[in-house]
Write a protein that binds this DNA or RNA. Structure first.
Length: 491
DNA sequence: TTAGGGTTAG
């Protein structure tokens, strides 16, 4: 309302209002997602400067209109550091990490600007999401080369990037070399250790942080709880959870409940986990149910699984996807194909869309993407041939036996074997073996959790080919070496 | 003195 009145004044008095005032209003519209009004004002402004352009673009990037932002960015007469950061962070915000890195490279070619702290934070985050270690390392070297002071923000981003690219050793080195550590620096290191299944180390670091007089925030505690969860440190995790309020004045949010439920359920204490859910002061969301359901599958508890399935079907259908897959997998794991069929019919009826499995692998600084049953990669025929050969060798030399009980539908054994052999992480590993030298570790990032079959395949492949294979899935790292996984099969 | 950044459980 207030904005509209000022808008009318600006139009009426036109030139009497300087660009500064117009920009302020433009920014007001942009912040609140009123992009049409921002665009109208921009079109009517007598004079525009780089701030006007950047404000308008920022309005588009922050509200999911990246296409329009890209158009304007290419039209704008001159750009400064802020304009580049707006575009790059816009791409990071919608998960177009490769585009973020592409724009960063373009920025480096623009003589009029120099990369600064915000842009490094953005691109390191893009590398972290992609698991693009080579590019992340290159950016680290670049930061050192231009002599940018290592602020705690830059350290935090580097630690996060290395941890998420599978190099917890490098993350540790950065952490140890950082003199100014704030809560974010500690948190990114703790979360990194947790993600790697190093729960004891995460707890130790957490104690050091407290001893250093740094107060944890709710994200630090998520990192700690997650570490306990992935390492089976049930009592330690519960005591951190119970002390949150008293010791640090942080009341548990649904995310913290999610961690505790996961902690108990993973350890097989399903009923205790269910009790926690029932005692929660807030409504459980799909995430909580999924954590429980996934452990029901691991521990083959069909009864509880069915009860959870009922709860899930009462939630908003747009959240059902992953939940139904888990339920179906649970039935499949105990051979209840009639139930699997029923879930499948429900899914069809409710027109539930599933997330496609997707894996990335970086080879020579280029990130390659594979979808489940991919036919898009230019070398796909060659990759399929390689995969057949790899799985054959994994069977003979690595003791791999196809585990098809995770397949969603009741297919023939042979068809099921086909279905799991198309999983994106298997395509990625075949591509990795095809295009890297022997002895080089293979690093894969996956958008979903790795399935049981792929997990045992990776173990066998690591033995048969004497290769270290690191898979970062949706929840943690699996480092396969000589037939074993760093998660000790606790996932 | 109007535009820009990150960590986050499953």
């Amino acid at each position: 309302m207030y904005g509209r009145n000022i808008h009318a004044l600006v139009i009426k008095f036109g030139c009497e209002f300087d660009t500064f005032v117009c920009n302020s209003l433009l920014n007001f519209y942009s912040i609140f997602g009123r992009t049409d009004e921002a665009q109208n004002l921009f079109d009517e402004m007598p004079q525009r400067d780089v701030v006007s352009w950047t404000s308008l673009i920022s309005g588009y990037t922050k509200h999911g209109k990246m296409g329009r932002a890209t158009e304007l960015f290419s039209e704008m007469p001159d750009r400064n550091e802020v304009s580049w950061v707006v575009m790059i962070s816009g791409f990071v915000g919608i998960g177009r990490y490769n585009d973020a890195l592409r724009y960063f490279n373009d920025m480096l070619c623009d003589d009029k600007v120099k990369p600064n702290e915000p842009v490094f934070v953005c691109v390191l985050s893009a590398c972290a999401h992609l698991g693009a270690l080579d590019q992340g390392k290159w950016i680290h070297v670049y930061i050192d080369k231009i002599g940018m002071s290592k602020s705690s923000n830059i350290s935090t981003s580097l630690i996060d990037m290395y941890a998420k690219c599978g190099r917890i050793d490098c993350a540790n080195r950065v952490f140890n070399g950082t003199s100014k550590r704030d809560v974010l620096t500690w948190t990114s290191m703790i979360s990194g250790l947790s993600m790697h299944g190093l729960g004891e180390d995460a707890l130790r670091l957490f104690s050091q942080m407290l001893a250093a007089g740094i107060k944890p925030d709710n994200i630090t505690l998520l990192g700690v709880l997650n570490g306990c969860s992935h390492s089976g440190l049930v009592e330690e995790g519960c005591s951190v959870f119970n002390d949150m309020e008293n010791l640090w004045g942080i009341s548990p949010k649904i995310e913290h409940y999610g961690c505790v439920v996961d902690l108990l359920a993973r350890a097989g204490q399903l009923e205790r986990a269910f009790e926690v859910v029932r005692g929660m002061p807030m409504e459980p969301d799909i995430v909580i149910w999924r954590a429980l359901l996934s452990s029901c599958r691991v521990h083959r508890n069909v009864d509880l699984g069915e009860r959870i399935g009922d709860h899930i079907s009462q939630l908003d259908p747009s959240f059902h996807g992953g939940g139904y897959v888990l339920l179906s997998n649970l039935y499949a794991s105990v051979g209840r194909w009639d139930r699997v069929d029923r879930v499948r019919k429900q899914m069809n009826k409710k027109k539930i869309e599933l997330n496609t499995g997707c894996s990335w692998i970086e080879v020579d600084g280029v990130v390659h993407e594979f979808l489940a049953a991919d036919k898009l990669h230019p070398r796909i025929t060659e990759i399929h041939e390689k995969l057949n050969e790899v799985l054959k060798r994994a069977r003979i030399e690595g003791g791999y036996v196809t585990n098809t009980n995770q397949v969603l539908f009741d297919l023939s054994e042979e068809e099921k074997e086909q279905a799991v052999s198309w999983h994106s992480e298997k395509l990625a590993v075949a591509f990795g073996l095809l295009s890297t030298d022997s002895g080089t570790p293979i690093r894969i990032v996956k958008n979903l959790r790795i399935c049981e079959d792929c997990h045992s395949a990776m173990k066998a492949i690591s033995r048969a080919f004497s290769r270290e294979i690191v898979v970062r899935d949706r929840s943690r790292f699996h480092s396969f070496r000589e037939g074993n996984c760093s998660c000790k099969d606790y996932w």
